[in-house]
Design a protein around this nucleic acid. Structure first.
Lengths: 255, 255
DNA sequence: CTCGATCTGTGCGCTTATCGCACATTGTTT
DNA sequence: AAACAATGTGCGATAAGCGCACAGATCGAG
């Protein structure tokens, strides 16, 4: 193939191997070689080399037909979790907030156009898909995503949302980029974001930034509830005070 | 360097890159190039190439001086979590057990000579080091480790423990390999393992295998408490029945 | 302020790791 | 049984990755 990006330091093999690891998920827990090759757009030979190397290192297992990840890959993800104090710091506050309100609370960071959960205290299983640390959701239609996007410069926020594709998640999902930018402006003004069934029908979610001592946005946290139990207005009335309190408690504790 | 292992498919660059990711942890959240090179035993040039590639892919960030991991690495570590149903399945049962007993409960798998936490419900912070999903402990002196080692063929269990180095964690840690093999035999007979302050002073822990419908050991779960509050005998009397119940409840649910 | 030590960025030639293809084999499907 | 798809293996060609060496930057000590 022609060299489109002739960067001096490329480490193509590393990039391919990471793509191979990342192609496993809940829908594809076990994959054969050709399967992985298709999913990663690698040649079969390259996919095979990656898988054999990963197996030799213990990151994948091979039963003679299918490859699957081993818990050793947690070494990689856990390297990040243990290298940052934020998740462990926030977790007990989320649990407290969750107990007080009897709703589920989470914290997340922005990674490109998606949010990544870094801590969570679930009260009930209200979402169709189970969320946990490491889970990802589109930023443009999630409450925490909007809080985090609102904290970025406007051109960047716009670019990130457009790059993500703006796929509607429900019939109520707002996908117009200008409308979304307006919403971000509102979030910036009010200091919180309320999303009403744009991510999943029946789910309302209220999010707020996590600030450090200097007032910078370092993450977002939210509280989500069933739409039948609480209307959007009720959400703000019932939960904003406690969330502001959590925000204020954490602020001096975050470097 | 001479080719000691002339395997045809090696993918050295992938191996190096993974080592670079894994060299970050709580004690080294930010590292410079030469620092990473030392920690991974790579040449500075190789470490630099890995770090630049990882940064280009968004797995690490560079502030001009130090590199640090980004939450994107959770894509790798938590690819496994989402590819296996076990953690999500076990979590609520651990929470229930933890509520009933007011003690901390966890589940783990064996990865080489270490156990890896895959789910946890902490009641109180009783250990000096905070545990969470992805945390690792030596297998030979932890209750879950002994349950998992006991489920392996004896020669394999012996080899794994020896490979781990048998470093004593407290003055009470048993490090004699034959004594440990005896203990594993007892665990196999009784169906549970009790570890009394061998991992950390003041910590007692009772573990039991998680069985699938066919009766195979697929993981271990435990309950840990402070030694001051409960003696070893008390642990078995107080908690074994509830743990057996949890084990029985989960057994038909695990594929 | 100067000097020394360490680290970083860069370029380069050499080595071999990695590439994709092609063929033989196996096993799966219809 | 035939057709299809996936796997394992060998191989030659290419360039990816290697370590070294030099130069500039940074930092600390004295």
């Amino acid at each position: 193939m022609a060299a489109e990006a002739p960067d001096r330091d490329h480490m193509a093999a590393l990039e391919k191997g990471l793509a191979v690891i990342a192609c496993f998920d809940g829908r594809h827990p076990r994959r054969a070689i050709a399967d992985v090759a298709r999913a990663t757009a690698l040649s079969r030979a390259a996919a095979r080399r990656c898988l054999l190397t990963l197996t030799r290192l213990g990151y994948t297992a091979y039963d003679g037909k299918y490859f699957s990840l081993t818990p050793r890959v947690l070494r990689l993800g856990y390297a990040w979790l243990s290298s940052t104090a934020l998740p462990q710091l926030v977790q007990p506050f989320l649990e407290r907030l969750s107990e007080d309100t009897h709703e589920s609370c989470s914290a997340s960071l922005l990674d490109g156009h998606e949010i990544v959960y870094i801590a969570r205290s679930a009260q009930r299983r209200i979402m169709s898909v189970g969320l946990s640390v490491g889970s990802r959701l589109p930023g443009f239609c999630s409450s925490m995503g909007r809080v985090l996007l609102a904290a970025r410069p406007e051109p960047e926020a716009r670019a990130l949302m457009l790059a993500g594709g703006l796929q509607p998640q429900t019939a109520r999902t707002i996908t117009d980029i200008d409308a979304l930018m307006q919403i971000l402006a509102g979030v910036r003004r009010q200091g919180h974001a309320l999303v009403d069934q744009e991510l999943e029908l029946g789910l309302v979610s209220l999010a707020m930034p996590l600030l450090n001592a200097r007032g910078e946005v370092v993450a977002a946290f939210n509280l989500s509830a069933q739409a039948q139990r609480h209307t959007a207005q009720e959400m703000e009335r019932l939960f904003l005070p406690k969330m502001r309190q959590t925000q204020a408690l954490l602020r001096p504790l975050i470097g």
